[in-house]
Design a protein around this nucleic acid. Sequence first.
RNA 1: GGGCGGAUAGCUCAGCCGGUUAGAGCGCCUGCCUUACAAGCAGGAUGUCGGGGGUUCGAGUCCCUCUCUGCCCA
Length: 929
Amino acid sequence: MNQKLPKAYDPSLIEEKWSNFWVKERIFSVPTPRDAAGIRPFVQLLPPPNVTGRLHMGHMLNQTEMDILTRWHRMTGATAVWVPGTDHAGIATQMMVERQLVAEGKSRTDFTRQTFTDRVWAWKQQYGSAITDQMRRLGASVDWSREYFTMDDRLSHAVKEAFVRLWEQGLIYRGAYIVNWDPVLGTAVSDLEVESEERAGHLYHIRYPLADGSGSIVVATTRPETMLGDTAVAVNPADERYRHLVGKMLLLPLAGRQIPILADDWAQPEFGTGAVKVTPAHDPNDFAIGQRHQLPSLSIMDQQARIELEGSPYHGLDRFEARRRMVADLESAGLLVAVKDHTLTLPISQRTGAIIEPRLSMQWFLAVHQGPKDGGDSIAANATAAVRQGHIQFTPEMYSKVYFEWMNNIHDWCISRQLWWGHRIPAWHCAACSEINVARQAPAACRRCGGTELVQETDVLDTWFSSGLLPFTVFNWTGDPDADRANPDLAAFYPTQLLVTGFDILFFWVARMIMLGCHFMLQAPNPDGSRRELKDAVPFRQVYIHALVRDADRQKMSKTKGNVIDPIEIITRYGTDAVRFTLASQASPGTDIAFHESRTEGYRAFANKIWNAARFLQMNLDRAQQAGYRISLCGHDSVSLELPQNTPLETRWIFSRLSAVAETVARALAAYRFDEASSAIYQFFWGEFCDWYLELVKLRLNFDVAHNDLTALTLNALAGVFESALRLLSPFMPFLTEELWHALYASVGSPSPAVSIALTRYPQAEDFAADEAAVREMNTLQELIVAVRALRKDMGAPEKEAVPIRLHAGAAVAALAQANAEMLARLARVSGLELSTAALTGAGTRSTAAFDVAVLYERQVDAAAERERLTRELARLNKGLEAAEKQLNNQGFIARAPAHIVEGLRKQHAETLALRQKAEAALAALPPA
RNA sequence: GGGCGGAUAGCUCAGCCGGUUAGAGCGCCUGCCUUACAAGCAGGAUGUCGGGGGUUCGAGUCCCUCUCUGCCCA
């Protein structure tokens, strides 16, 4: 019945078993609650990885943090829902499939839209779950029954609904604007998807002759190829050099059109020649000038950024080829005045690395500064207020500043993409009258002219539009106030409690969720029918922004650098629990994590330590059973707050420590201090439970004699503390603790009280008896033991040989030492204790504030080493005394510092003084060097 | 150019609302195969808290400034 645990911890033997178990048994599935008001929800949305993605360290950190919090809250009785899903990732996925086609010698244009998207779906079916499969190995306690894909019917329906509503509210509009055009992808991309890069380039000075032949003006430009689209030349109104030319017409070289010279502040006199060409269709600033002066916009490039100008000799040329040709032509025409080196900042597409072409094109936009037609504040106003008013809190707090900064400068959001893969915009263009019919279903006839020839919009929505809706769409939001009010999932789980994510998607995703969440949910009534306020419309109440995982040299991981650490590979070598603990132990808000494998090695050793503690326990439980003891273990009830009268010191102590650690962990986790929480548990488990408690219980467990109370009591305490410690640790190391927890119950011969440790109660400070006196006494004994061990070492006493000691101390400490002679014998190999009324100094002694102790061992100490040690000690003490005296002699300090600080310092000063005397005496007693 | 961080032991990082002589892990040195664990046990060494100035009875902690360094936005 009792399976022996293997001698060494081997994660590969247990992790797969439990991750399968958790999924198969649906341990973390949360049904829709009947009574939303009766639960304490802890709801989080997993930042959905792209279907094209592979798990990286960032995911692992993110999921480790989310999982620790989820498991912790779940164990404290919350209804913990963690919703997983994947994102269709428009551009990334389409690129992935297109690349596949290229390998087959085909291209997207060989397919119809339908057959292409069918192919993407097929790809998704086959490869799309790679990342969620990897996730299962991390032990993430997500609710798989709620898993979604952003293009599921359910979510697509909601996306369509959201779009139509925004359109009806007048917040979505269509228009020709300058957008960031990626000529490789053939689509517009948002500002966020554009990076800027400095590159060496040229500034071309080109002469534009006046139409009347009376002279010319020289313009400076970095992009001569766009001159075919020029519709003006601008000079600064204050620029004396050109004032007389304003209003005159120019003859545009290479095009032969006439364009005006106008005055506009945008032209900076000190840049280039002070005269700039204006190309409204190919430059955002020029576009603005064009608007101010009602200039025509002349688009001269196609979707691949080739010159598109019928009849022009440059027609069909790539933009950079066109530049070369045009510069050459200008030169031969004598119009190229100068070419100067110039560093220019180029917009680069994040996806493809292509140089973005600002391009005038028809796009769909979401208005962020405008109130909806049916009343209410603008999207940006609500999103700003939600954070400003504290309904959403950022950790680290600093990120709220970043958020405001962005929100204050936000522009209307270009939500259309010229792709095939994504949510198609629900709009139909009337062939007859060009009316745009936005509708939930394909309309039969145009609403304006009744025409029946309707063509659906070909654009799809930006991926972030649909993911921005997730906090409510995953809970089946419909947009219909009555239906939404009656929706039990929405009632129970919205707003979600927390979002854990990286700063890289703060604007892409976090901000969009706040924008869309506040906007839509303000319109959804509360479950009781009352009007929803902003504080309950927010998509989440807390945002925790985690750090970046870097390599051991603090370098950002990147494919090109080749320093990417694959979490699966590390997990395979060290086990998931050890990797999770590594990340947790370094996860402190606002600090990047340098991932050192040596640390993971250390935490695997920790896991092994726990494993062996379990083996020790199992061994003793076996013996106990053979000896006829019955051990009862029943979750946290096994630990009694009332310890029996005869409970030995170390047991009173360990329960006190357990209580304190539970407190520390709770406080740390509430503040996202994963590092503090994990270090407190580590310290407790290894430094206190294993190093001290397990050694001490060996004194109490006695199976050679008939049944005795002390053994029984100790066994119960030992098992109870261990069981509690496993629960304490389980959010951090779910696999190991699950395995050992079940094994522990098996050893006791009783069924586990829950199918999983994850469903038990999290240890709380008040679950354990705290005993201040026991902690103090134990600390004194620890000090004494450490002092004796050190002395033994100094004097060269062999490890195995027991040695007597002499102790000088106050009555209480002396009595404590006498009462615990066994402890001293066991842990410091003390063979006998002799009390001394006189203070002890000289070779072979050590002193603390509480006692002097001497090891009675014949061999002479190494006088030189001892002198060195004492000298160091003396220096340390003097430093302390100096600092203390400086303050104590300071009248200001005595007068102004709080009494307990002054008193504490005095006491310490007195103690240090005594220690110094002893050290001096010891030094003097040494034979001369 | 604007904004936000960081600099503490050899390395990676903690150090709260200022309060007594600054901590952890890894690494390093020494001794131990003490039957739970050598992935272990025990003992030990290591810091002008980036420089300078200020506030304060008191500064690693608050303020100013400089140096170095990282990130975000334009």
